[in-house]
Amino acid sequence: MDYGIHLLILICIYTILAQGLNIPFGVGHLFNLAHVAVYAVGAYTTALFSTELGIGFWGCIYSSMAIAGLFSLFIGGISLKLSHDYFAIGTIAFSSVISALLINWKSVTRGVLGIPGIPRPELFGIDFYENSNFLVLVAVAMVIVQFVLYVFLRNSYGRTLRAQSEYEQGALSLAKNTVRARTVSFLISSCAAGLAGSFYAYYINYIDPSSFSLVEMIFVLTIVVVGKPGSFWGITASTAFLVLLPEPLRFIDIPPSILGPMRQMLYSLILFGVVWWKKETLFPVERTV
């Protein structure tokens, strides 16, 4: 039972994270590889604010979202001037900067030791140390995030983002401010990542840099690619599918030192397989004037 609740909590957190990435990457075709770095910023903000400053739940989730959002404006302000492949390179450079900071800025992040003892929130007199209560909390957050992202995906803003991903000059000719649309997509996705990071820190109670590596980025990328970039329910379904997929491996007698790498290989193979199999339709060919 506890194990089931643990998996459901993970599904909720990853759904927030993956739906967030889907806006710039899936809809806007911006190859944002800094998503997990922003997720780390959210997690560390909550970890530091709650352990060092004793700030409560609401303060922490809002500051995680706000700081992640500000951070994304910084990345976006620089990287969004780059086009296509260079944008991907720019974001990967930023995520390396974050990894290096997390490991080496020891006076703040405690480096590879990580930050332990993040207290679970207590709200409305309910103790969220109980996992089943925490599940309700994170599920409510997931529903709210999904609702907001659904609105953005299906309204005029979503159409602008789709238009610019298909034919930038065409969108510009219809008076669409494409740079602003991309920046907003970045901002929305980073707030979602910040929130997911905050919940992750609260749930695990302990964070260290290894949770926010490139491996994690590949996992989130796999979720979006398998769920079909730009779709909505597809992402939610593929999150559940991919979080649960390697779980049966636990019941086979494999030492943990092999199990970890096996999961990573599994995800990488799935990502490669889907990209190979769907290469024609995953992203339509770019067009220029």
């Binding site: 789709r162 238009a163 298909e166 034919y167 000059q169 065409g170 339509p284 067009r287």
Partner: peptide, 11 residues
Amino acid sequence: VFQNFAVFKEM
């Protein structure tokens, strides 16, 4: 109006 069709084909 572009020479090479600027309709958004996925829409």
